[in-house]
Design a protein around this nucleic acid. Structure first.
Lengths: 374, 374
DNA sequence: CTGTTAGCGCATTCAA
DNA sequence: TTGAATGCGCTAACAG
C-alpha cells in the first residue's frame, strides 16, 4: 500500500540499508548516492514509517508534555517553551506532544502509561502535583519504570519527587557531573520558588500596612498551593514575632480554598468578605483567581486598591494590563519550560543535585496600595 | 531488557497470540485464561510496545491536534474538548496529543509530516488557516496523502478546504450518508460562522447608533480574519444601502491589522484614535485583542462604554467578568472540539456535505452602549 | 477458544 | 562506502 524503504531503494538503485543510512544521517554515505536517494524520496513522497523505525531502533522521537489544564496560559506558555527546543524540522528532532491531564491523578498515570507504551524519548511533567500519598507512590513507581525503560523524565514547576524509601543516606548528590541518561535515577527537576515568592508578596502587603489579609488558595492537596500558602504564613509568622501580634491565627480564618480558576476567586472573595467585612487585602492563588477576586470585590461596591488591595501570582501576560494592573509574582515560565526541554533532550547537563530552582520576582503594580486609614 | 509479550505468555502458560487477544480485547478469550494473563501482566508490569503493535497492525492510537497558539485559551478549550472524547483509559482508546504550530505554516506542515510518520489514526487541525496559495496547495497535498494513508483528517474552526482543481462540478455532495473512512476524500469540517457573528455584532453597534466604528482585525492573511471582516463590512454595506450613507469607505480607513494578542489591541486602538479621534466604538479581532483595546482607551482617558464602546469575539471565559464585561460573539468551542473529536474517531457520522457549521451567538454585555450624544 | 506461522518496515550487525 | 541477512515485538490469518 504505502511507499516503503524498499521502494525508495529500488528507485534509487541502492539497497534499503543505504536509504536508511541516508535518512538517519548518522553514517557516511557517498554524496552522489545520497542525492540519488533523496531524489527518489522526493519523487515517491516517501515518509518514514515511525513505528517500524522505532521498533527496530528501540527508541522513538516522541516527547510527552503533561499539563494540568491546557486552557490555562500558565501551562500553555511552559508547553510552548518545551516545544520550542525540539527542532522537529531537523533529522533527529523530536515531536513534542502535550497531554492534558485536567489535574486528574488517574489521567496523569494513564498518559504516562500511554507514553511508556509509545516508548517516548522523554516526558516532561509540568505544574503542581497532588499530594495524596497513594498517588505519589504510584506516580513515583511509574516514573521509575519510565526511566528504567530509557525515557528521560523531567519535572517542571513541580517539586522534586520525595526520596524513595530505603536509601536513607543524605550523602552528597553525585556532584554536578554529566549524570547521563538515568543519572541518579531521580528525575531532573526545574522547580519554582513558590514559597519565597509568596513570602515576598505578603511582606509587601504587610509593609504597606495591611493587617487583615484574606487568602484565596488553590486546591488543598496540591504542592503549589501548599508552598505558596507556606510562604504567606512564614511572612505572617515573622511579622508576629517582630511585632507581638497574632496574624497567623487570623490567617486560618481568612484562608479559603478553591480551584485555580476565576470562579473560585469570585466565590472565595465573597466568602472572605462574609467572614471579615473589614478585609483590606486579598491574595489570590494565581492571576486568574485574582481576576475573579477583583470582579467580586467590584460587584460588592469596593474599589481596588482604594478599599481592598489584590495580588495574584504567576504574572501571566494579561496581568500587566488588567485594570488595575495586577501586583503579582513573576515566574519565568518560558525560561523554565525551555530549560526543561533541553534537559529532556539531554542537551543541557543536569543541575547540581538534579534540581534547578528558578527565582520568582515580586511585580508591584497598581492593584496594591496602603490601606485606607479610617 | 524490557518485558515482552512472550514473557507474559510464558508466565501465564499461554501463547503470545492469546496475550495479545486479551490485551486488545476484541476477540473471545475464556474468562479463566484472561484473568491468568492479566495477572501475569500485573506481576511483570508489562506495557505493550506501541511501535511494534502499530507496525504489525498498521495503525496507531495517536491522534494529533494542531493548534496555532497553545497559550491561547481559544485553542486550549478546543484541544481539551477533542481530548475529552478519546477515552485513553480504555482499550482501543486513543492518545490525543496537541502540537503547537505557533501559527507558522511551515511548522504546520512539519507536524503533519511527523504525524504521518507516526501513522496517526487521525489529525485535527484547529483555528484559522493561512491563505497563501502556495501554502494552501502544500497543505492540501499533505492532507490528501494523510487521508490516503488512512489517517482521518478533521478541520475544526477553519473553513473547508478549497476544492482541488479539476473536478469542476458542484454536484450534490453525496448526501448525508455514512461516508466511512475517507468519505468524499475532502476532510470533514466543523466550521464557525464567523461571518454571521461579526455581522450581527456590527449590526448591534449600528442599532445603538454608532457610526464611527474602528476595527482592530487579526493577521491579514488568515481565513478567520477575513471572514470576520467580511461580516463587519456586510453589515455596513447593508446600512449604507438603507440609509444612503457611506460607512463602508470609512471602514477602510478605520481598520487596522495585528496579531491575535493583547498588544495588537493596545497598539491598534492607539492607531485608530490617531486616525479618528471621534471614534465611538471599536471592534476587536477577538476577546484578547479587545482587552488590549480597553487598556489603551482607558490610558487615553476614555471610559468604556461611556466614551467608546468595545466588543470582542469568541466569548472566552474571562470576557464575562472583565470590567466592564465584554460584549462579544460566543463560539461554542467546547462543543465544536468535542464534535471534531468524535468525527476524528469515526464515532459520529459525517455531516451533510462533510461540513458542519456551528452557530455563533451575540452576547451583549456592558462594554457596548449608545454613543454619547454631544 | 487457543496455538502456530508468517510477516509488518526498518536499523543494524557483518562481510565485501 | 555499500549490500545481504537478521530480528525488533507484535498482530492477524489460518489451523486445530
Amino acid at each position: 500500500m504505502a511507499v516503503t524503504l524498499a521502494d525508495v531503494a529500488a528507485r534509487a538503485g541502492v539497497s534499503a540499508a543505504t536509504v536508511s543510512r541516508v535518512l538517519s544521517g548518522n553514517y557516511p554515505v557517498a554524496g552522489a548516492t545520497r542525492s540519488r536517494v533523496l531524489r527518489a524520496v522526493e519523487e515517491l513522497e516517501y515518509v518514514v514509517n515511525g513505528p517500524a523505525s522505532s521498533l527496530a531502533a528501540a527508541t522513538s522521537d516522541l516527547v510527552g508534555v503533561l499539563v494540568n489544564d491546557i486552557a490555562d496560559p500558565f501551562f500553555g506558555i511552559m508547553a510552548s517553551a518545551v516545544q520550542s527546543e525540539m527542532e522537529p524540522e531537523k533529522a533527529g528532532g523530536k515531536l513534542a506532544v502535550v497531554c492534558n491531564t485536567g489535574g486528574s491523578p488517574e489521567r496523569e498515570l494513564t498518559y504516562l502509561m500511554l507514553l511508556q507504551r509509545q516508548r517516548a524519548a522523554a516526558v516532561v511533567l509540568t505544574g503542581s502535583a497532588v499530594e495524596d500519598p497513594g498517588h505519589a507512590e504510584a506516580l513515583a513507581a511509574r516514573l521509575r519504570r519510565l526511566a528504567a525503560a530509557g525515557t528521560r523524565v523531567v519535572l517542571c514547576g513541580r517539586p522534586p519527587l520525595p526520596e524513595a524509601g530505603g536509601d536513607g543516606g543524605q550523602g552528597g548528590g553525585k556532584g554536578a557531573a554529566g549524570a547521563g541518561p538515568g543519572g541518579t535515577g531521580a528525575p531532573l527537576t526545574v522547580a519554582f520558588d513558590n514559597r519565597g515568592g509568596a513570602r515576598r508578596l505578603t511582606e509587601h502587603l504587610l509593609a504597606l500596612g495591611h493587617r487583615r489579609i484574606g487568602y484565596v488558595a488553590g486546591p488543598a492537596e496540591r504542592t503549589t498551593t501548599r508552598h505558596r500558602l507556606e510562604g504567606h504564613r512564614a511572612a505572617l509568622a515573622d511579622h508576629d514575632r517582630d511585632h507581638g501580634r497574632d496574624l497567623l491565627t487570623e490567617a486560618d480564618r481568612l484562608t479559603v480554598h478553591g480551584a485555580y480558576d476565576r470562579s473560585s476567586g469570585y466565590d472565595g472573595a465573597l466568602e472572605l468578605l462574609r467572614r471579615e467585612p473589614g478585609l483590606t487585602a486579598v491574595l489570590a492563588a494565581n492571576d486568574t483567581v485574582a481576576l475573579g477576586v477583583c470582579a467580586a470585590l467590584r460587584e460588592a461596591g469596593l474599589s481596588i486598591p482604594g478599599d481592598v488591595s489584590v495580588a495574584g501570582f504567576d504574572d501571566l501576560p494579561f496581568s500587566a494590563d488588567a485594570s488595575p494592573s495586577l501586583t503579582t509574582v513573576r515566574i519565568p515560565l518560558h525560561e523554565a519550560g525551555a530549560r526543561a526541554g533541553r534537559l529532556a533532550l539531554g542537551r543541557e547537563s543536569a543541575p547540581p543535585g538534579d534540581v534547578a530552582t528558578v527565582r520568582t520576582e515580586l511585580m508591584v503594580r497598581a492593584s496594591t496600595a496602603a490601606p485606607r486609614t479610617d
